[in-house]
Design a protein around this nucleic acid. Structure first.
Length: 444
RNA sequence: GGGUCGGUGCCCGAGUGGCCAAAGGGAACGGGCUGUAAACCCGUCGGCAUUGCCUUCGGAGGUUCAAAUCCUCCCCGGCCCA
């Protein structure tokens, strides 16, 4: 883990200090019996879990939220279990959806799991006294027969409880109804809790606020099955100013953690562009920076918002966490080349070395010497680089002054030839203020 | 099953034979102002093309010089009746 984490100070008394930290960060939505949970945490390390369904080949920033919650508990000495939902992922959580899910086939699911497992491992310590564990709920559901499931699991819940759930009711009243398959999802999740309580001494399940219903149902199942009281804790959903769930960038791109799906540079940029409005919450809820440090950063930011210290701190902290410090540095360096006034307006003065650097961070495309000799129209240049989707879009942007090459506006009648290249190789294409694409003359 | 209203561009929603690529709003994108922020102002917002062409108004046919608009059948949804 990186050094930017706060470690609980020696003075924080007992394991329940985690609750105070969560509270201070605005990370506490609801818990079952708060006093009982606090008392239990003070007795000593607890085992807790959170589930992640492999619905995509990579986690995104939204998924990171509960994963970091596990990490926070771990930092306070508690033992996290990461549950990869190989089984639940095959069914699909009906919550938050208006339509029936398309079931993932085995291959897609395996591919998704393969992508996610390393990410799940990345943020936790798997050694030491509070070592984390990674489990897949397929290991106890694969051989569960339908009859056993109905007898042992189905008996723990009444349909009345299940139907009362908002997510279910919405779907039942909606156009397409809800299949029995998705209806059963909460039983599987509840059964996970029973399983982990019984065989792993798990006493707490955490998750986002939208998981409250599922988790509490599991708490009840554990009580009926094992006669044991276990706990539930949820965090508020992280929402964008417009109310959408966090995880997408302003432009609508998903903030993938996988560098293949989103380059560290773009990841860093997307976070850097967070609004003032949301930045305090983001710092508190997503980073491990100590609460006091965050308060100091925000004070600076309020003094001089133009410096965007808070955004920088946030983008740096998250990129460190996800991609490592080297990636953060590279992204920052690339950004300073692209956004510093001097280099942004005088792209040709950017050193060759800097272009090499940029070629690592930006999306690039190539162009042949032959094409350059023939001359390239502005539309073809833009479309060919992939920065725009169509010639019409290119034309629109050009007439509005929205495209530039090597720091100069791209004129409608300009022809790009070899002489336009910077350092004989590079064309830095910019769309709007924030989108860049590097075109490199191919070696031939 | 019967009746009735409706299905329009990314979303909402006007349009009931030519002036419709289709009002208006939202989202999105670009410009301006800024701080790679918000708000605000301006512009663009189906595709190709240098005055034009092509594809679009649930689907398939039909009427007409001309249809999102009329007719037929079908599919889907709301409401009412059974």
């Amino acid at each position: 883990m990186t050094s930017s984490e706060s470690t609980p100070s020696a003075g924080s008394s007992g394991g329940a200090a985690i609750l105070d930290d969560l509270q201070a960060r605005g990370l506490l939505a609801r818990t079952t019996d708060a006093d009982a949970l606090r008392a239990r945490l003070d007795e000593g390390p607890i085992t807790l879990y959170c589930g992640f369904d492999p619905t995509a080949p990579s986690l995104h920033l939204g998924n990171l939220f509960p994963l970091l919650l596990l990490r926070r508990f771990q930092l306070f000495g508690h033992r996290p279990i990461v549950l990869a939902g190989g089984a639940t992922g095959m069914i699909g959580d009906p919550g938050g959806r208006s339509d029936e899910r398309n079931l993932l086939d085995d291959d897609a699911l395996d591919a998704n799991l393969a992508g996610i497992l390393p990410q799940l491992e990345q943020f936790l310590d798997f050694d030491g006294p509070a070592a984390a564990r990674l489990v897949d709920n397929r290991s106890w559901t694969a051989n569960l027969s339908a009859i056993d499931f109905l007898r042992d699991v189905g008996k723990l819940v009444t349909v009345n409880q299940m139907v009362a759930r908002d997510s279910v009711r919405t779907r039942m009243e909606g156009e397409h109804g809800i299949s029995y398959t998705e209806f059963s999802y909460m039983l599987l999740q509840g059964n996970d809790y029973v399983e982990l309580a019984q065989n792993a001494d798990c006493e707490l399940q955490v998750g986002g606020a939208d998981q409250w219903g599922n988790i509490v149902l599991g708490v009840g199942m554990v009580r009926r099955r094992l006669g044991r009281t276990v706990h539930a804790l949820t965090t508020p959903l992280l929402l964008r100013p417009d109310g959408a769930k966090y995880g997408k960038s302003a432009g609508g791109d998903t903030l993938w953690l996988s560098p293949e799906l989103m380059s560290p540079y773009r990841f860093h940029q997307a976070l850097l562009q967070s609004t003032d409005e949301e930045i305090p919450d983001l710092l508190n809820r997503l980073t491990f920076l100590p609460v006091d440090d965050i308060a100091a950063i925000m004070a600076d930011h309020t003094q001089n918002p133009g410096a965007r210290a808070a955004q920088r701190a946030f983008a740096d902290a998250m990129t460190d966490l996800v991609h490592g410090e080297a990636a953060t540095e590279a992204a920052t360096e690339a950004a300073s080349l692209l956004f510093t006034k001097a280099s942004a307006t005088h792209g040709l003065e950017v050193s060759e070395r800097a272009f090499e650097q940029l070629s690592q961070e930006l999306e690039t495309s190539t162009v042949t010497a032959a094409a350059l000799d023939a001359g390239i129209t502005p539309e073809d240049l833009a479309v060919g680089s992939g920065i725009v989707a169509s010639k019409s879009e290119a034309r629109r942007l050009i007439s509005g002054g929205g495209l530039s090459v090597n720091g100069r506006p791209l004129e409608a009648d300009s022809i790009t030839t070899t002489t336009s290249l910077a350092h004989g190789r590079y064309l830095l294409l910019r769309k709007g203020k924030k989108t860049h694409r590097l075109i490199i003359r191919s070696a031939d």
